[in-house]
Structure formats: structure tokens, C-alpha cells
Amino acid sequence: MKKLAFIAIVVGLSGCATIHKVNTVDPESLQFATLEVPTYVMVGQVDGKGVSNPLCSGPLCHGGIEIKLKPGKRSISFKYADGHWSSRGYSVVNYQYEADRQYVLKVSKTNFTVNYSVTEKEK
């Protein structure tokens, strides 16, 4: 019985370590940008449209989120929650994405404020 419980826990935790991939472009499109969202950040909307599934990268799904985006200026809402502290609501980040580039969402916390910025991923 203990062995079965251990296997269930290991399987459950290993499933949580995957990166959640979100495709907001036409699946046949070859022109897209990729945004990596770090642990403890939730995605609410992309260009004013809610995502089909709640996206999280917190303690129970800590693999992060990867979003494929159409090139151009995009508006994405994020919320921080790490189990000890969370932001009050979603913050909208506007950024100009270019095709075939990879970007990373950077998060900084200071004095009960969460700041988000997007940078191009280093190669």
C-alpha cells in the first residue's frame, strides 16, 4: 500500500513539471514569437481575450508557461502568486514582438509591488 501511494505521488509531481504551452497563432503559421513566463506567474488574457484554460506556473504546476504569439504589439495580463504573497490583480504588459524571436518575462518584487518586463532571450 505504501509503495502504491509513493508511485501515485511521484507520477502526480512529475506531471506538474511540464511546461504549459499556449498557441495563440494559427497552427499552420510559421511566423510567431515565443514568450517564456516564469514560475508563480499566471496568465489572464492575451490581447483582451481570456485564455481557454487557467494558466498557472505556481507550486502545483511549476514548469512555467510558453506562449506563441503573432508578431506585433501584444497586450498580456499577468498575476503573481507564490503561495505566500500574491499581487492584488492582473497587470497588463504591452510589448512589440518580432517573428522568430524568443522573449522572457522578468518579474521583480519590491515593497509589495510586482513589476513585469519583457526582454529578448539571450542566445
Results as ranks from 00 to 15, higher is better:
29 S>C: 09
59 P>N: 13
58 G>M: 08
44 G>L: 10
12 G>H: 01
47 D>C: 12
50 G>C: 05
32 F>S: 08
44 G>H: 11
22 V>Y: 09
11 V>S: 05
47 D>M: 10
30 L>I: 05
18 T>L: 04
33 A>N: 00
10 V>A: 11
63 G>K: 04
54 P>F: 04
63 G>T: 02
40 Y>S: 12
59 P>A: 13
17 A>W: 06
25 V>A: 14
60 L>N: 03
58 G>S: 15
45 Q>A: 10
57 S>L: 15
15 G>D: 05
60 L>P: 00
44 G>N: 07
24 T>S: 13
30 L>N: 05
40 Y>T: 09
62 H>N: 09
31 Q>W: 04
40 Y>W: 13
49 K>M: 15
39 T>C: 04
10 V>L: 15
51 V>G: 06
28 E>G: 00
57 S>H: 15
21 K>Y: 00
51 V>E: 15
52 S>W: 02
68 K>L: 08
19 I>H: 02
72 G>M: 08
43 V>I: 05
46 V>F: 05
50 G>M: 10
64 G>S: 07
39 T>Q: 14
18 T>R: 02
44 G>I: 11
14 S>W: 10
19 I>A: 03
11 V>F: 12
26 D>V: 15
69 L>I: 04
61 C>M: 11
31 Q>G: 08
12 G>D: 05
55 L>Q: 08
26 D>W: 06
60 L>E: 07
49 K>G: 09
12 G>A: 08
65 I>G: 08
42 M>Q: 06
21 K>A: 01
12 G>F: 10
37 V>T: 07
50 G>Y: 10
24 T>H: 13
24 T>L: 11
16 C>A: 15
13 L>F: 13
22 V>K: 06
26 D>N: 15
13 L>Q: 11
56 C>V: 07
36 E>L: 11
39 T>W: 00
21 K>F: 03
18 T>Q: 07
